[in-house]
Design a protein around this nucleic acid. Structure first.
Length: 822
RNA sequence: GCCGAAGUGGCGGAAUUGGUAGACGCGCCAGACUCAAAAUCUGGUAUGGGUUAACCAUGUGCCGGUUCGAGUCCGGCCUUCGGUACCA
């Protein structure tokens, strides 16, 4: 007999859908659990193994929670805006809206075949005005508070296609993915969200969320908080002051030159007439380098002197001002003080250009006169530092900062590596930015009651210069909301990460029209209890969503600080060690396995492969094992068809009344229920499946010799364990033994009989010198004396201790007895 | 370079706080069923030695340490994978 999955699976999916088994009652918040996977990008390709690996196990967790009696909400939706659809349109002429909608239809059908308990009433797509209207609303809320602003910023410019590229479209060698042209940096006016205002809170609140440590660390590094001091250097012959940021004010007496970034406005100003040609040429050379070449750490640092001198505020010393490519224009003030003795980069630069190296921090155990062969960057004792000599440099940091602040020559400052979020894209397929540019009034926001600014359908989205919307006369030309004169709409669209920064708040009320989302309902259901998605989003989506959530809190839309209380990353499934991708042609198609084994088996096999967070290399070698398990399970239940109708199981059995075989079955069932729950709770699906395999091994051996009540007891519990990981099969066997209602319609999860877990005898390992020599069975919790007697009666123990002196005997209750001899 | 994770049989992988290494599955071997094969079921399966049983030795990337006892803790390496790229 073979498990007829191709009849059973569609049958139950139809039942679930017809009876709306997975529709969540959003008003019941008592035991509410919100489980979410990162929504899906509706591309033209089919669901691949990665999707299954993400969604299947997460759904199993959600189902587990449902069986345990929680009101579980598990939605799915489509991240429907974005570049791939637009590029596809450019290639084929098929409109992004049409292809996206078609893809959503296809993907929905495939998702339904997986058999996840998605609440299809809560489906969401971001490319419809009902959704993106609220992106615009959000934008305007930020604009009003100065958190959305426009400034000139360098963008990736493709000189062949005449367009701006996203970072992802630039290959590691600095050429464009599409045209192959060398990408240039170009200054363009761009919209930004001021995420830096939230930098400190985004960092601090990482302590309050249950996320993988490595993800929190990545965000910590990305935010890059650094505490230091801004120091002011006067410039000889100029009124301007150079401000530099340093984390090492204790090394201020060791400054031997100052460096400014090539892009810094001071470059032109401070360069003397005799250095002008050289500096101008240098700046031009640097700018012609690609971003990659420019920032490569292996590249040798270069620079030229401006001919002008700065004055060190603490000792009045004149130091040369250089222009150097190792200083970033975008961090701090774009100017740094150079202390070659105590900074590796400065040391390297100083050696190359024969600039002086002055030691001001003494390493313990070294001589002040000893020449440095490399920069000494650790703390030490201050020398050559005037009144600060002899201080420990950690203390000196504070003392010098105090001194600078007292003398108004600097102040303590905290800098962040995090930059504001550039959200404008010169692309068609996205949310239009709700701003009008008027010659008289400047930037004018659209009135809230005029939203949405609809994305026009009939546009020429083929590549040309700048944003496609800029060429659409009907769209771009409008009247200024303020003065009524002719004006132009902003031609850009928003980064799709804006869409995904708040979608989880709309799932509980996807058709809400009164606002972005129903505040009360969102607050009842968020933060999301369990969020599952790829680790590649660590510093993008997962940071942006936290930022937007905090902003929404500040304008009174939500009452929590964080969007996702718990986060788990699924691992990556590779094929022959490489990431699966269409271009490599190594994508494993799940459909082939669904046809041969069914969706439950495929899902279970993915879970059984290994630890969820690790992923692994794809191999179909073991799937027959899981298939055998499913078949054996089906056959076992078939043997007891209808048994639950004739026999009822008690909540628990009295151990003393059971035969040895029954006791063994009873124990195994209870052990399994307990272990399984522990494993599934923590996303350890591989071992959860193993628990069930052990259980069926026990049942196929011994269940026949049990009384009917115990058979029912064992089978109904086994069925509930199957529920989360093999939902179709579970429903089927549940029905087979005679249960009237669907398992998920009337969720059941059984308590463990703790008495069944306690065993009356244990095997104790007997060791001599830590080496296993014997195993003895003893009553549980035996006293040392009793164990000792049995141990010393053992022949092997005698053989290994014969003629030796016993030094020590160690007894660990119920575990080991170790004898140390000499 | 820096940060993080992982290295366990032929293979995927198990192993609460240091306490019987190899659960579970694949594969392989043997047997049952069969005219035969497939499927299914039963048993065996870390490596080396051993009169093939008993038993002995070795064994969790490498070298060393702590401990009665280390896959697990400590120090130093090696390899693979992910993140990041001069952030002063």
């Amino acid at each position: 007999m073979k498990y007829p999955f191709n009849e059973v699976e569609p049958k139950w999916r139809k039942y679930w859908e017809d009876n709306e088994v997975y529709k969540t009652d959003m008003s019941d918040v008592e035991k509410a659990i919100y489980t979410l996977v990162m929504f899906i990008y509706p591309s033209g390709s089919k669901l691949h193994c990665g999707h299954w690996y993400n969604y299947g196990p997460t759904d199993s967790w959600a189902r587990f929670k449902k069986l345990q009696g929680n009101n579980v909400f598990e939605p799915i939706g489509y991240d429907a805006f974005g570049l791939p659809a637009e590029n596809y349109a450019i290639k084929t002429g098929i409109h992004p809206y049409d292809s996206t909608m078609q893809n959503i239809e296809d993907i929905r059908r495939q998702l339904k075949e997986m058999g996840c308990m998605y609440d299809w009433n809560a489906e969401l797509k971001t490319c419809v005005p009902e959704y993106y209207k609220w992106n615009q609303w959000l934008f305007l809320q930020m604009y009003q508070r100065g958190l959305a602003y426009r400034k000139k910023a360098p963008v990736n410019w493709d000189p062949v296609d005449q367009t701006v590229l996203a970072n992802e479209q630039v290959l590691p060698d600095g050429t464009a993915e599409r045209s192959g042209a060398r990408v240039e940096k170009k200054m363009l006016s761009q919209w930004f969200f001021k995420i830096t205002d939230y930098a400190d809170e985004l960092l601090g609140d990482l302590d309050n969320i249950d996320w993988p440590e490595k993800t929190k660390l990545m965000q910590t590094n990305w935010i890059g908080k650094s505490v230091g001091t801004q120091v002011e250097f006067k410039v000889e012959g100029f009124d301007e002051i150079i401000k530099v940021f340093t984390t090492r004010p204790d090394t201020l007496f060791g400054v031997t030159y100052v460096v400014i970034a090539p892009e810094n406005e001071f470059v032109g100003k401070f360069t003397t007439a005799e250095n002008k040609t050289q500096v101008a040429k240098y700046v031009e050379d640097v700018q012609s380098l690609s971003e990659i070449d420019r920032t490569s750490t292996t590249k040798e640092k270069t620079g030229v002197p401006t001919g002008t001198y700065a004055i060190n505020p603490v000792n009045g010393e004149k130091v040369p001002i250089w222009v150097g490519d190792y200083v970033l224009a975008s961090y701090g003030t774009g100017c740094v003080m150079a202390v070659p003795a105590h900074d590796e980069r400065d040391f390297e630069f100083a050696k190359k250009y024969q600039l002086p190296v002055r030691k001001v921090i003494l390493e313990e155990g070294t001589e002040p006169e000893a020449e440095l062969t490399e920069a000494f960057t650790a703390p030490g004792t201050m020398i050559n530092s005037g009144q600060f000599d002899g201080l420990d440099s950690v203390e000196g940091k504070e003392k010098i900062s105090d001194y600078l602040e007292e003398n108004k020559q600097g102040e303590r400052q905290t800098n962040f590596r995090l930059r504001d979020w550039l959200i404008s894209r010169q692309r068609y397929w996205g949310t239009p930015i709700p701003i009008v540019h008027c010659d008289s009034c400047g930037e004018v926001p659209i009135e809230l009651d005029q939203l949405p600014v609809e994305l026009p359908y009939d546009v020429d989205f083929s590549l040309g210069s700048g944003s496609p919307l800029a060429r659409e006369e009907d769209f771009i030309n409008t009247k200024c909301p303020k003065c009524g004169k002719d004006a132009k709409r902003d031609p850009d669209t928003m980064d799709t990460f804006v869409d995904s920064s708040w979608y989880y708040l709309r799932y509980p009320n996807p058709n809400y029209n009164e606002g972005m989302f129903d505040k009360e309902r969102a607050n009842n259901w968020t933060p999301v209890n369990m969020y599952v998605g790829g680790a590649e989003h660590a510093t993008m989506h997962l940071l942006y969503a936290r930022f937007i959530h905090k902003f929404l809190r500040d304008i009174g839309m939500v009452n929590s600080d964080e969007p996702f209380a718990k986060l788990i990353h699924q691992g990556t499934i590779t094929n022959n060690g490489a990431k699966m991708s269409k271009s490599k042609g190594n994508v494993v198609n799940p459909d082939d396995f669904i046809v041969d084994y069914g969706s439950d088996v495929f899902r279970m096999y993915l879970m059984f492969m290994g630890p969820y967070e690790l992923g692994g290399d794809w191999s179909d070698k073991g799937i027959v094992g899981v298939d055998r398990f499913a078949n054996r399970t089906y056959v076992l239940f078939k043997d007891y068809e209808g048994i639950a109708k004739t026999a009822k199981s008690p909540d628990k059995f009295d151990l003393a009344s059971l035969s040895e075989t029954e006791k063994s079955v009873y124990r195994k069932v209870n052990q399994s229920v307990e272990k399984y729950a522990e494993e599934l709770e923590h996303f350890r699906f591989n071992t959860a499946v193993a628990v069930m395999m052990e259980l069926i091994n026990e049942l196929s051996k011994n269940i026949a010799d049990c009384r009917d009540e115990l058979k029912v007891y064992a089978l109904e519990r086994f069925a509930t364990l199957l529920g989360p990981v093999a939902p179709h099969l579970a429903e089927e066997v549940w029905q087979t033994i005679g249960k009237e209602k669907s398992l998920f319609e009337a969720p059941v999860y059984y308590d463990v009989d703790k008495d069944a877990l306690t065993v009356d005898s244990v095997t104790i390992a007997v060791q001599v010198q830590g080496k296993l020599r014997a195993k003895i069975d003893m009553p549980v919790d035996s006293a040392e004396e009793a164990v000792k007697e049995v141990v010393w009666a053992d022949d092997k123990v005698k053989a290994h201790t014969d003629g030796k002196t016993v030094v020590k005997e160690i007894y660990v209750k119920n575990k080991i007895y170790n004898i140390v001899v000499r």
